[in-house]
Write a protein that binds this DNA or RNA. Structure first.
Lengths: 310, 310
DNA sequence: GATGCTTACGATACCCGTAAAGATA
DNA sequence: TATCTTTACGGGTATCGTAAGCATC
């Protein structure tokens, strides 16, 4: 048995059993990929992949049991490398953050600025993606840290920590009748065409839930992935907007007015997500600490490597 | 990086940094061991071992952090092999049990008999050893299952389950004055020279604790590793014996009398111990189930591979 | 016919083992 | 001096890549 064989098994599943792709992903020749799979199956005495003729289709029962073990083993292999880098060059390396528009634009800039000055020799990569993609990137190892309001809390192979709490608020064009009305209610909002986030993004579920609980069905004329698009169309008069409150900037958004809606929608919590069992460089822990001071290195390491798991 | 390198790192620590021994343990040449260590250190960019001149002395800080990762990785490698065997030959293989005299002699015979008839093609090895050695054998992978009253419950890298509860009782020669006396007390026992287990064996700690709580200091004239030795010397009249109650057999121990001591000493619990994260063959799970029917395969696997650890 | 997997084959690189030299106790 | 580690060197093997042959879609 051999590490390359295990890498190939993992990659084969990731590439939907297309060995040609596997070979190119691992920078090697297809022939070797085929051989390695065959050799491994021979050594274990078990077929790992189901086949139709020569094509691979999926995992057999033993293959399915094997996969998580292989994944963890390769994770540990990465951890060993990372540990080497950690000691070899304390403050040099990469840090990949996967995050949503909202966090990248409104929550992270001060953290990133501080980080860059503290760790000038760390190459920081910020990848903007959807919450689902963030989870995938954490899982595959492309990202060290994921930051989003959605999706991070419910994955068994991730750990997540609260970053900060935020609320939705209404934005309307300057001079809109709602700026003169009394305290907001869901009913009054629902009288106007609505522009807000796409489902699965930035607390949209909370918005839908609030209206549903109130027995209201507002007309959502547009859904967008980020507040900037929403603001643009509110400004055009397409409707009123529901966005994360921190996305409104008094000076920059001069043509718009923000109306707080403190109790209409449930609080959202942006979270920091990490892959369980993945070794984190010290500067990654510093980044997290800069987001949430209560997250000490010890607390994070204990969550990522629970003592009981050894 | 390479599996052999990692095996060498682990073995080097196990063999107290004597590379010659490491080589022979891994069936290879010293020269290769040296070079592999050097290569790995070069690749990671970090010294893993402290040295005086050419001799290795111990682990550096990075080496200490590395070791548990390597151990887990190699455990997973074993798990992969075991998983192959599991599917390739369902009911054929090895099962190594490490246990104490008391369990081997009095608790396990019926379980072993049943197991042998159910799994005739499994090679069952029973190793009798001390509680500390059981822990070591589980840790090193020499044993699949450990069974003892002592030591198993407190190791963070092991999981343990209760097997059965038992109590100490007194044995005396036939016709001894205590056979005629009323209910036993610690005070009356302490009037006689005592023969019992060696510290660290078969609930000896409970015996000491009971006497200490009562402010008594009995004269222990002999301590032995097993009940058979104790019984022999009790029969010779050296003193009265305190043994595990199940070690007394009315027919075989005709010259002795057992006097129950239900409330004098705390109950002991024999436990089954497993290495966390180690894959178990189905027949190993069956063995455990035969010991304690409430320990289903699912319950054991969940304890050995907690879901949260992935 | 296009894509994808297997097998064959030659070159390369890696790993191992022997042996000699140097260090340590 | 005996034990242990490193370095050098040669042989063997495993792995890789190219390329051809086949199966699948």
């Amino acid at each position: 048995m051999n590490l390359q064989q295990l890498r190939i098994v993992r990659e084969t599943v990731r590439r939907q059993f297309n060995l040609t792709e596997v070979a190119s992903a691992l920078c090697t020749a297809q022939s070797g990929v085929s051989r390695h799979i065959k050799d491994l199956e021979d050594e274990l005495g078990v077929e790992l992949f189901t086949r139709r003729g020569k094509r691979l289709l999926g995992l057999t029962a033993p293959g399915q049991e094997l996969l998580p073990i292989v994944e963890r083993l390769l994770l540990d292999l990465q951890n060993i490398k990372r540990l080497g880098e950690q000691f070899a060059q304390q403050d040099t390396g990469h840090l990949a953050i996967a995050t949503t528009h909202t966090q990248a634009r409104y929550a992270l800039p001060p953290v990133v600025t501080g980080f860059k000055s503290h760790f000038p020799r760390v190459h920081l990569e910020l990848h903007q993606c959807s919450p689902r993609e963030i989870v995938e990137r954490l899982r595959s190892g492309e990202a060290d840290i994921g930051i989003a309001t959605e999706a991070l809390a419910d994955e068994p192979d991730l750990v997540s920590f609260p970053f900060y709490a935020w609320r939705h608020a209404l934005i309307v064009p300057e001079g809109h009748p709602l700026t003169a009305a009394g305290p907001l209610t869901l009913e009054t909002i629902a009288e106007y065409p609505l522009i807000t986030y796409h489902p699965g993004y930035t607390g949209r579920a909370r918005i839908d839930a609030a209206f549903a609980r109130a027995g209201l069905a507002p007309e959502i004329v547009m859904s967008a992935l980020d507040a900037d698009v929403i603001k643009a169309y509110v400004e055009l008069g397409l409707g009123v907007g529901l966005i994360a409150a921190m996305a409104w900037h008094p000076a920059r958004d001069a043509g718009l007015r923000l109306i707080e809606a403190p109790d209409l929608f449930e609080t959202n919590t942006a979270r920091l997500g990490l892959r369980r069992g993945r070794y984190l460089r010290d500067y990654a822990l510093s980044f997290i600490r800069a987001c949430a001071p209560e997250l000490t290195a010890d607390r994070i390491r204990e969550a990522v490597f629970p003592k009981t798991a050894v």
